[in-house]
């Protein structure tokens, strides 16, 4: 599904964020991308959905090299990749329903389809009762569920989550991880960048460890070491 070859990123100030990264992610896989802050996890995720460009190397999604994608085609790529952020990135002056529907609106879904899909995804994340709430009326965990709902509402084949439990308490973090596992079980490839040791060790999935821009470990059923 995702193939990364010799990926390098050197920032303008000369800092090497990624050094010769090679990775292969199969269809419907669940991967934990772990490592300390500044290891290059976010940079790598940003490159997968073309929010950042590599200095050298290539990323292939379904054998399509991302470097061949024209600027005008980037939105279409992003519609196939859901993204979840640590800071949720919800629109504060829109309700839960509007925040999720917004993603479908930009894809020209009909009003009836938007209503149906938003209801389904709210049911999946367990927040059907809160569709008319505004983000500031929700807890951190609920906000993250909405962020996940928005990311998967159009059933993208790939879901990237960058520190989705970074600002949540342990119990809520567990709920979020179970939700991501549930989404993975619905045939979605999931990559989660995290440094939450407890969750990684308990859920026993594939773990890719990054350190100073390099992959130093890749275990099929791994631990956070």
């Amino acid at each position: 599904m995702i193939k990364i070859k010799n990926l390098e990123k050197v920032h303008k100030n000369g800092f090497k964020a990624l050094k010769k990264v090679n990775l292969h992610v199969g269809k419907n896989e669940f991967i934990y991308l772990v490592g300390p802050s500044g290891a290059g996890k976010t940079t790598l995720l940003n490159m997968i959905f073309k929010f950042d460009t590599p200095t050298s190397g290539e990323i292939f999604i379904d054998n399509c090299p991302l470097s061949s994608i024209h600027d005008r085609q980037i939105p279409h790529l992003r519609r196939n990749i859901g993204v979840v952020f640590q800071d949720f990135k919800l629109l504060p002056k829109r309700t839960v329903y509007e925040n999720i529907a917004f993603a479908l609106k930009v894809m020209h879904y009909s009003r009836a389809n938007i209503r149906r899909k938003v209801s389904q995804v709210l049911d999946l994340v367990g927040l059907t009762q809160k569709e008319s709430y505004f983000p500031n009326q929700l807890s951190g965990g609920e906000k993250q569920r909405i962020c996940i709902a928005r990311a998967i509402v159009n059933d993208p084949p790939i879901l990237l989550a960058d520190e989705p439990t970074g600002s949540l308490d342990p119990d809520t973090s567990w709920e979020i991880m179970h939700l991501l596992s549930k989404i993975n079980a619905r045939n979605t490839t999931v990559i989660v960048a995290t440094h939450n040791k407890g969750l990684v060790d308990d859920l026993r999935k594939r773990v890719v460890t990054l350190e100073s821009g390099k992959i130093i470990r890749d275990q099929q059923i791994g631990f956070y070491q």
Partner: peptide, 12 residues
């Protein structure tokens, strides 16, 4: 930024 992330075209 959110619009860009959810796949809105520049025109949109």
């Amino acid at each position: 930024t959110i619009m860009q992330l959810v796949g809105a075209t520049n025109g949109l």
